[in-house]
Each structure stands twice: as C-alpha cells, then as structure tokens.
Design a protein around this nucleic acid. Structure first.
Lengths: 233, 233
DNA sequence: GAGTGGTCTAGACCACGGT
DNA sequence: CCGTGGTCTAGACCACTCC
C-alpha cells in the first residue's frame, strides 16, 4: 500500500525545487509535462499546474505552450517590497510622526516635468514642499506636483494637516506607478531642512503615479544618509 | 437569452477593480462571498477564487476564513523589481561589459560582518574587490565576501575572468537573500576607482545571499551618482 | 497537425476562526 | 457550531506554437 500522504501544490513545488537544487533537472533542461508529473505525484494536472505556474511567476521556470517547461538558465530573481506610507514607516520605528508643510503654490510645469509627466502646456500643477519628522528629527523632505487638471479638488485642500500622499491615497486609490532610487548631494536648502551639511549625500526616491494612463502626481523624496531601504528576495 | 460571453478570471478581476474604483465596495467593506459572486458571474467558485486570491496577493483585498473578504483600507502597494546581473544591466544600455579583479585574499570575518552573516569565529572568508565597466567607463565597484566553509570550491577559483556573482549563480542557484539600498559618500579609494571626486555621493546596494539558512555571500556594490534604479508598481 | 500549457466546470472535503 | 475561504479531483475544451 502507499505510505505516501496526498501531495498538495506546495509540497510539489518543494519537490520540484529540490530536483532543481540537486541538478536532477539542470538549468536549461526540459521538465516533464504536466500530465506525466501528475501521474508521478498521483494527483491531478490542476495541482501540478498550480505548482509550476507559481514557480514560473517566481522566475524559476519558463513555460511555453507546446515547447513545454524549461528550467530558467539565469533565474531572474525578483525582489518585492512594500511601499509603506511615510507615516507607517516612521511609526514602525517607534517614533512619533510629525508633518509640516513648507511651501504651496500653483504653477505651470517646468519643462523637464512636462516631459516626465506627459503634460499639456496649459496644465496647472499644485506644487508643494513639505517635511516629515520622526520624534522631531528630520526624516524625509518631499517635493511634489499634483496634476490639477485631473484632481481639481486638490486646489481646495490646504495640506496643512493632512499630508499629500495620505490625501491622494484616499482620494484616488488603485493607481499604478513608477519608482526610481538614486543618490545625490544636498543643496543648501535641503541641507537646512534635513539638518545635515551641504553636499552631504542623500538618498532620493522619485515616484510617479498614474490613474488610467494619466499622471496624477510626481513626488521626489529626500532622505538624509543613514536611511536604508531594505527588502528580501 | 444571455448576450454575455463567458467571463474568465481576468475579467472578473477587472469587474471587481471597477467596483472598488467606483466605491460600490468602499474601503473596509465586506465583499460578497465566493458562492454569491460565482452565481452573479455565472461561473464556478474556482474562477472567482482565482480572481480574488490574486487581488489579495496584490494587497488590494484581505481574505480570512469565516470573516470573508474585505477591501483593504490602505492598500499596501507592492513594487516588484527584477535583479539583473551586472553584466546584463550594462549590456542592456548597449555598452560593452568589462570586469576586473582588484584584490583577492582570504581572511577571517571582521566583527561587523560576523554579526551580519551569523558566522562562527573560525569561518574563513574569501574577500574580493572588483570593478565592472561599461564601454571602459566605471559602472560599479564591488566588495564581496564568500563563506568558504559553505563553498570551499571558491578558494580554487582565481576570479580573474569570471566575476564572483556569475560564478556563484551557476554554482549555487536558488538562493534567497536580503537587499538594502542607501546613499553614501565616496572615500578616497572608491573615488579613484569610480573616477569621481572624493566625498561625491554614491549609490550603495548591499546584498546578502542565503542557501538554506546559511549565508553564502555578502556583497556591497557602489555606483557613481547618476545611477538610477527603477521599477514599476 | 499535434503536443503543451491555460483555463473552466461541477463537485467535494477540509481547516480555520468568528460567534 | 458553522460559514468562509483553501484546495483537490476528474474531466473538458481551447490557444498557442513548434515542427
């Protein structure tokens, strides 16, 4: 009689991973098809399908109809990281969050931003600078532009109390976006706000947010050095 | 008669997303259960399950047995980015990739690294510094430690030709890891290698790689400012 | 054309966890 | 307890794409 318990898709994933690690199926090799594996594991094709589909989503297998399933030669590992709200990020350290608006004006887009945001010349933008503090210490400086053609209500908000990101999240949820990370050096103004020396290195995050192919907002966030962004993979 | 075509899980996902956008199901609300939705969409529970399960993986819905499915109040967006090999990253710009080993020695772990890598005192490490160039221009400086207790074969490799990352990927694929990003300023040596001025800002990536709960390698990679890491979400 | 993965159906049992 | 999501079965049809 079979001493085997029934195998679930998680266990099948692990068996497959083991066979990849011990090179039973070396990189570039073709893995048996779903029907054969289902037979071997005494389960249905559906179960094998889920195991292999998830491994493919993780970049470990490459699947093509008719061609079959191959072991990725250079597994492109994907890192996932959550984008916490600045408030959550600060409060997670145990510090008290505090927000302050520095400037707020309405302007036309500078040309470099027009290009980045795919704007029309006449579009008006709400432009703001603000600071985020943890226990009173500078944590992040933010400069942001909001597309008033798309979100006209933003003009009526002072943003003295609620910060732009939190307002936008509840106003227009379910957006898509683009992120960029880089290093830069602090100019005089930024150094003052972040309480660091001029020319000190800063960590910069740029974030562009879209709602159905229209740009909602562009934000540039500056962190004093010492800030680390971390994630697993 | 029904003029409706049959709905697939992708279409059901979109219908659900539409109802979230138009606030039919506002944040925090409970979404109908799978059986009811299956009836509404004239499909099986399996199909609804896949649609809602994927939305939950994306952080848009929150599912619990018995409690049902809720709309996430603050959808925690997740960004995914692939971790390309340095060679692929350089070649993707159209530049010619070139690698050069600077130093290679075997040492005990400095104490800060022992802590980070959870090493035992006696563990020996292969320590290397190297440079990666695109079209002859400095692209990345890398400092790396490899755990020789775990990967003794590394001691026999000169790493004059193949770079450590590429060798490790084919030697020990399927690892897990941890990434950190930060900004720093170039010290004298680094400035020389990257052909920038001392104290110029640099973008730093630290990467720790595990194989089954044991640390394989720790790498610290430095990019001259101007480097941007980008991703969508 | 034929083999492979992609998806759906109809039904079942189970595990978790709120009441 | 018992409603809900989590998963599996057995079978089916379809879409893609390599040969």
């Amino acid at each position: 009689m079979d001493s085997d318990l029934k195998l679930g898709y998680r266990e099948i994933k692990n068996i497959i991973l083991d066979r990849l690690k011990d090179k039973t199926w070396p990189p570039g090799a073709i893995v048996p098809n779903e029907v054969d594996l289902a037979q071997e594991f005494r389960c249905t094709r559906t179960t094998v399908n889920r195991a292999m589909r998830e491994l493919a989503e993780e970049g470990i297998l490459i699947r093509k109809r008719k061609a079959g399933t191959k072991v990725a030669t250079r597994p492109i590992r994907q890192a996932k990281f959550s984008i916490p709200s600045i408030r959550a990020e600060i409060e997670a350290t145990g510090a008290k969050y505090h927000y302050e608006l520095i400037t707020r004006d309405i302007c036309a887009a500078p040309s470099w931003l027009q290009i980045q945001m795919s704007l029309i010349n006449e579009d008006r933008l709400l432009h703001m600078k603000s600071m985020h503090y943890g226990d009173g210490k500078p944590f992040q400086h933010e400069e942001r532009w909001i597309n008033l053609s798309l979100i006209p209500e933003a003009e009526t908000i002072s943003f003295q109390v609620i910060n732009p990101n939190e307002w936008l999240i509840q106003k227009v949820p379910l957006t898509t976006g683009h992120l960029a990370f880089m290093a830069a050096k602090a100019d005089c103004s930024l150094a003052g706000f972040l309480n660091i020396a001029e020319h000190d290195p800063i960590f910069v995050i740029e974030r562009m947010t879209w709602l159905n192919d229209a740009v909602v907002t562009f934000a540039r966030m500056h962190f004093p050095s010492g800030y680390r962004m971390e994630t697993g993979f």
